[in-house]
């Protein structure tokens, strides 16, 4: 019995050590954002102003929304490879129909969201990997976007343009938008009681099923939410750029995945963080600006962004591995 008591105190100690580790992990995304902002301030102090932040973070809003869409999908252990092309398609629809024929535009966008929900149902019911389904959808969205808008053009509806160029007092609009998005999604998925079920269905689907919840429903809800945020991302993008192009959101697929992971999410196991994902998306947006200020040629920027990603993930892996083990190693 003495050895048992010893073992349990040891475990208690390990649990104690675990808590700061989790906190460290949680602040890592914020830390990387702070570093990037500090870097920008160092190279160009004037950028940290109302106007400068507006300019730098404007295009961050659609990235944030696409990242949240991707996060919903990743929560239930799936991956959406089509989100970038979906955002492009939504952009084309917005630039062509939403201004001239709003009813048709809205019907199409609602239909798109329905298609996302259907995708979730198919993935669950037929047990097909989401990578296959969304890879197929990637080409569908791309094709549709080219059909809708063969040449760059179109025009954003005025109201959309006005929303995206809102002048909020004191705090720049992109920051207000990011905070609101993070708060709403955090409440919905981390704080609400059904949110716990949604995350649980990524952590241990069997357990959720055995407790009598429908796994079909959780999957459909998550894809539905992804569709909604994908549409919001496309709309906000067009509100900013005022005209569209069939490939306008193409880079968002990888950017959104990177944002989720950078923000502390895991590919499997239902471990995600909406606040982290928003911060991750903003970090990636600002990283490009920082590299510009550092006069790194655009040819190297993609590689430099990748390097940032690798550094942050390596730091996280180190934190994960550190813990009780490191004390005895060193």
């Amino acid at each position: 019995m003495t050895s048992l008591a010893g073992a349990s105190t040891l475990r208690a100690v390990v649990a104690e050590v675990n808590t700061p580790r989790r906190i460290l992990r949680a602040i890592l995304p914020a830390l990387s954002l702070a570093l990037v902002v500090a870097g920008i301030a160092w190279f160009n102090p004037r950028a940290i102003s109302y106007f400068g932040i507006n300019l730098m973070l404007n295009l961050g809003i659609p990235v944030v929304l696409a990242t949240i869409a991707q996060m919903f999908v990743i929560t239930v252990n799936e991956l959406d490879l089509s989100i970038g092309n979906f955002v492009s398609f939504v952009g084309c629809v917005a630039a062509i129909w939403l201004r001239e024929n709003p009813v048709l535009g809205v019907v199409i966008l609602i239909g798109c969201i329905g298609l996302y929900a259907l995708m979730g149902a198919v993935i669950y019911l037929r047990n097909v990997p989401s990578i296959v389904v969304t890879l197929g959808m990637l080409f569908v969205w791309q094709g549709l976007a080219v059909l809708v808008l063969p040449r760059p053009g179109g025009k954003a509806p005025a109201w959309l343009h006005d929303i995206m160029n809102l002048r909020t007092p004191y705090v720049p609009f992109p920051i207000v938008a990011a905070v609101v998005i993070a708060a709403v999604v955090h409440f919905g998925i981390m704080q609400s009681s059904y949110g716990a079920i949604l995350r649980g269905s990524g952590g241990n689907p069997n357990a959720i099923g055995r407790a009598g919840w429908s796994l079909l429903r959780t999957k459909v809800v998550m894809f539905l939410l992804a569709g909604i945020f994908g549409v919001l991302s496309g709309l906000s993008l067009i509100g900013l750029t005022t005209s569209a192009d069939a490939n306008i959101g193409k880079g968002y697929t990888l950017l959104s995945i990177a944002g989720v992971i950078l923000g502390g999410g895991e590919f499997v196991g239902g471990r995600v963080s909406p606040i982290g994902a928003v911060i991750g998306a903003l970090t990636l947006t600002l990283a490009g600006t920082l590299l510009n200020f550092m006069r790194i040629s655009p040819d190297w920027q993609v590689g430099a962004e990748g390097a940032i990603l690798i550094i942050v993930l390596a730091a996280r892996a180190l934190i994960n591995r550190a813990g009780p083990g490191v004390l005895s190693h060193k």
């Binding site: 059904y194 716990a196 995350r199 952590g203 241990n204 357990a207 919840w213 196991g269 239902g270």
Partner: peptide
């Protein structure tokens, strides 16, 4: 109580309790 455990590792203890009780909802459910 199944042989292989049926808890979600990514949820807290309280959240796991909620999984079994759909009636716990609304403000203060946690």
């Amino acid at each position: 109580v199944f042989q292989e455990l049926s808890l979600c590792p990514n949820l807290t203890v309280a959240e796991n309790a909620r999984v079994l009780h759909p009636s716990i909802a609304g403000w203060g459910w946690r």
